[in-house]
Simulated assay, not measured.
Amino acid sequence: MFDFWKKLGLVQVKEVDESFSQTMLMASSPAEWKSRGIKLYRENKYQMATMCFERAGDTNWEKRAKAAGLRATADHLRESNPQEACTILRQAAELFDFIGRAESAAECFCDLGDYERAGRIYFDKCRDPKKAGDCFTSAKSYKLAAKAYADGNYFLECLSACTQGNLFELGRQYIKKWKQAAPGGNGTAKQSKEIEKANKSFWRVAL
């Protein structure tokens, strides 16, 4: 594990102080190793935390610390070596996604400019239609953006996505669906006003 961090330039010898070196040599239970790892993780000392989680046999926390370390390194290299930073950040994103840290994965993909991948994670795994719609809009995937916004009842944003993508028939279908649901069903007075506002704004552009 130490060699892994060293290859990526993550190991700072000064950070691995004598007390930690002594700690690594001491016999400890898995629970103690995990506790030390979490403490180091919260101090942003990801490489040392990773080694502790490895000793604890906690693969999930080990991967989480590794991904966080990769993300921190990518941020550090952003200006001096942007290409390498992107490569490392993608590794972090994939690892976060693999271990179920969906929001962290989506944030990394956003930083990479992979907005559609981020949008899918926000929508499918984070259940956050607003962020998903924003990402899909940035990716110019307007049909997906409209679907995400509609799922969260973001009426104006949904129709804005339809307008940007020239998806006027789709926008008309959403308006019809909302109007049918709002008056006598589960719709509220506030929703009805929002729908009417979105409807007028949409048709000013569509016509």
Rank of each mutant, 00 (worst) to 15 (best):
L70S: 06
H76W: 12
A182Q: 13
S141N: 14
N60P: 02
C126W: 10
T87Q: 14
R172Y: 09
R101G: 01
L112H: 06
N153M: 09
P82H: 05
H76F: 14
I121F: 13
L156I: 10
L167A: 10
G69D: 02
S160F: 04
L77D: 02
R90T: 01
S104E: 01
A93D: 05
R101M: 02
F96R: 03
A65S: 08
K131R: 15
K176V: 15
S80W: 00
C86D: 15
K140E: 14
G119W: 00
N81G: 07
L77H: 06
G152V: 00
D134S: 13
A105G: 01
Y115G: 03
F96M: 01
G113K: 01
L77W: 09
E116D: 12
P183Q: 14
A102G: 12
Q164K: 14
K131V: 05
W61M: 14
A118P: 01
Y174P: 05
G100T: 01
F98N: 02
C86Q: 15
D128H: 04
E103A: 15
L156Q: 14
E84M: 11
E103W: 07
C158T: 02
K179E: 08
T59K: 15
E79D: 10
R127M: 09
R117S: 08
T137S: 12
A132Y: 08
A146W: 05
C126E: 11
E79T: 15
A161L: 09
F98P: 00
D124M: 11
E103T: 14
C135T: 05
G133A: 10
Y115W: 10
A148P: 02
A145L: 06
K125E: 06
P183F: 11
K176G: 11
R117K: 14
Y149R: 07
D124F: 15
Y142N: 07
A139L: 08
K125Y: 06
Q180Y: 12
E62Q: 11
A181I: 06
E84H: 09
G171L: 10
N153A: 13
Y122R: 02
D111P: 01
G171T: 15
W178H: 07
G185Q: 10
N60E: 12
N166Q: 11
F155M: 11
C86T: 15
E157W: 04
F123A: 10
A65W: 02
Y142P: 06
G119V: 07
L70T: 02
I99S: 02
F96P: 01
D151W: 05
L70P: 05
L144K: 10
A145I: 07
F168H: 13
A102D: 14
E169N: 13
Y149S: 12
A72F: 05
C158K: 03
I88L: 00
P82C: 05
F123E: 07
A93K: 09
K143Y: 13
D114C: 11
C108I: 10
A102F: 15
I88M: 00
A67V: 02
S160R: 10
E94H: 04
K143Q: 15
A139F: 08
I175S: 14
A92W: 00
T73R: 11
K179V: 03
